[in-house]
Write a protein that binds this DNA or RNA. Structure first.
Length: 592
DNA sequence: CTGGGGAAGGGGCCC
DNA sequence: AGGGCCCCTTCCCCA
């Protein structure tokens, strides 16, 4: 490899060529592939829809022009699952590391077609020719573009899979003279707002719109396609008829895997296990995938139930899994001793019954969302101040919310099964945002960098907090001892030292009226009562301190908004609240 | 060794 | 969906 570049190496080359170990490249590949399967020295993660693959940047760069342009800049690559499905990418990755196609697995023509499409997209020339060769041999390959462009091939899908398929439709193609150019310098700027990006939006995993660290080499949008379509190519796909057709063709081959199971490359054995058990693995499922799905339980319920995808982590998925098990496992119809009381269905095991019952609960909760949109509390019964401010009350607990969306969000906390599982570790979350934030920690994504020291954080808030180290700012002051803190949480833990004795019991006794007001404050601001009481008790001792008024501002702001008072006035009202007691405050609020 | 503070990671959950 | 805040926790350092 490098010998050829040595200007003085002519003679030496000849010698070394003569001494070449025939199996060297093979051994090297074997080693690399072995390292890949163990994750050893892998320096890039490729996300394909719901699957993660670890690999080596060098290997990818040496195999695919497209991947080369991506790995130069990112450690996390998202591939468009419409262009390459996880199981197809697995085959391709195997090819990259072995030079073999469909090793040990039965490879259908359909699969070859899908691999060809994906290889074209990824610009893996060797693999493209290999697939073409194979398909040609079977008489399945035709130059469909030409046929379609000339109206010779009917648009319907009975054409051979490749006919009419614009393989480069979404490929990050570049002018052919750049096809083998080296290095990132050939990377062109992305086209803003491009919709045919080969990359799934990375916003799922990164706070793409809030990167702060332009100085640290993070792109505005992770994995933005490196190269725009050259004009001629863009023209070639601007024909919507052709585009749609091609797309349909593509879906025939490349039905996306159901979302939910991030299948790491190292999970192959599990796949095999699943296959042995008659369950579906991504590969074996290939022909069955009916449509692209979202795993958002709020809006895909009916779709996913219809499709019966097995990996959907949505609340309905348990139910679906149950259906699938029964579809594929006739034995489970045996002695169904475990009966679900609400619906009367029998199950062979308590586990299955439990899963079914959970699905029931989620299902019912979900449908309740759909069928019965939350009604503002104040429309139903007698009103209190709280009902006016937060009219949407949870049916499972006493909490109430300002808007129905927040209530729905809250209600998920009561679901037996949390709807958003982490696809890497399986941990489940009630909110998608929490799950994606959690995923960032798995993937080591820290988009927020400190300009002063370069330290990186997963959250903006953490960076803000951290920046106080550099600025010396300590905005959180203990009203008891005057100690100052850069982190609010440290003030809180500090306050515990003041408020609790060594036995853990409260040191300071707050007056009852403070607790009453604290309850009111806590109810309406979502603070813990202790926290609200802390704030309130402190305010009475420091009425002349401007900080006191300041500390009341959050509550005052809220009060002012609700009752049309100035914030100062609201703060004043609140300061007096301890002396008045909750009832009178409410009374006073209600009649300003 | 222990307690306290500083700094940070991660989850819950409301907006 | 993302931001923001609260909370719990851990680790490290130091007196």
């Amino acid at each position: 490899m490098g010998f050829r570049e040595d200007p003085q190496g002519g003679q030496l080359n000849t010698m070394l060529d003569a001494m070449e170990v025939p199996s060297h490249s093979r051994q090297l590949l074997l080693q690399l592939n072995s390292q890949r399967t163990k994750g050893f020295l892998c320096d890039v993660i490729i996300v394909v829809q719901n699957a993660l693959f670890r690999a080596h940047k060098n290997i990818l760069a040496a195999s695919s022009v497209y991947l080369k342009s991506l790995v130069v800049h990112d450690n996390l690559i998202n591939l468009d699952h419409e262009m390459v499905s996880p199981s197809i990418f697995r085959i391709i990755l195997d090819f990259i590391y072995t030079g073999r196609l469909g090793d040990g697995e039965p490879t259908s023509e359909q699969l070859f077609g899908a691999v060809l499409a994906a290889a074209s997209y990824l610009q893996i020339a060797d693999l493209v020719s290999l697939c073409k060769k194979k398909l040609k041999r079977n008489g399945k390959y035709c130059h469909g573009n030409q046929l379609h462009q000339h109206g010779l091939c009917p648009p319907e899908r009975h054409c051979s899979p490749l006919c009419g398929l614009d393989l480069s439709k979404k490929s990050p193609s570049r002018p052919s003279n750049q096809l083998h150019s080296d290095g990132p310098e050939t990377r062109d700027p992305p086209i803003p707002g491009r919709t045919d990006s080969p990359i799934i939006s990375a916003s799922v995993l990164t706070n793409s719109n809030s990167y702060k660290d332009q100085n640290h080499g993070y792109p505005k949008r992770a994995n933005t396609p490196p190269v725009p379509h050259p004009e001629p190519f863009r023209n070639s796909i601007s024909n919507s008829h052709l585009r749609n057709e091609s797309r349909d063709m593509m879906f025939d081959w490349m039905k996306p895997e159901p979302i939910g199971n991030y299948v790491d490359e190292s999970d192959r054995e599990k796949d095999l296990d699943r296959e042995e058990k008659g369950e579906s693995s991504p590969l074996s499922q290939q022909p069955r995938y009916p449509s692209i799905e979202s795993n958002e339980p709020d809006d895909d319920k009916s779709t996913s139930e219809e499709t019966g995808s097995s990996g959907d982590p949505s609340p309905s998925s348990n139910l679906e899994r149950y259906h699938c098990n029964h579809l594929y496992d006739p034995e489970s119809y045996g002695d169904n001793l475990y009966v679900c009381i609400p619906c009367g269905k029998g199950f062979p095991s308590s586990e299955q019954l439990n899963a079914h019952v959970e699905a029931h609960n989620e299902d019912e909760l979900y449908h309740k969302d759909i069928m019965e949109p939350p009604v503002p509390f104040l429309e139903k019964t007698s009103q209190s101040l709280g009902d006016i401010i937060r009219p949407y009350r949870c049916s499972s607990c006493e909490k109430s919310y300002k808007d129905p969306a927040t209530l729905r969000q809250h209600e998920k906390t009561h679901w037996l099964t949390r709807p958003y599982p982490c696809s890497i570790c399986g941990k489940k979350f009630t909110q998608r945002g929490t799950m994606t934030r959690h995923m960032r920690s798995h993937l080591g994504l820290k988009p927020f960098a400190c300009d002063a020291c370069g330290m990186r954080f997963t959250r903006q808030y953490r960076l803000t907090e951290h920046m106080r180290i550099h600025s010396g700012e300590k905005p959180y002051e203990c009203q008891v001892c005057g100690g100052k803190f850069a982190q609010q949480r440290n003030l809180i833990s500090h306050m515990k030292m003041h408020t609790t004795g060594p036995d853990g019991k409260p040191k300071l006794d707050f007056p009852d009226s403070v607790y009453a007001m604290a309850k009111f404050t806590a109810d309406h601001l979502g603070l813990k009562q202790e926290k609200a009481a802390e704030i309130l008790s402190q305010t009475s001792h420091f009425l002349n301190d401007p900080k006191t008024i300041e500390s009341l501002y959050p509550l005052a702001k809220f009060t002012a908004e609700q009752f049309g008072l100035t914030q100062e006035k609201a703060a004043e009202v609140l300061t007096q609240s301890q002396l008045l007691g909750t009832d009178r405050i409410i009374e006073r609020f209600s009649s300003p």
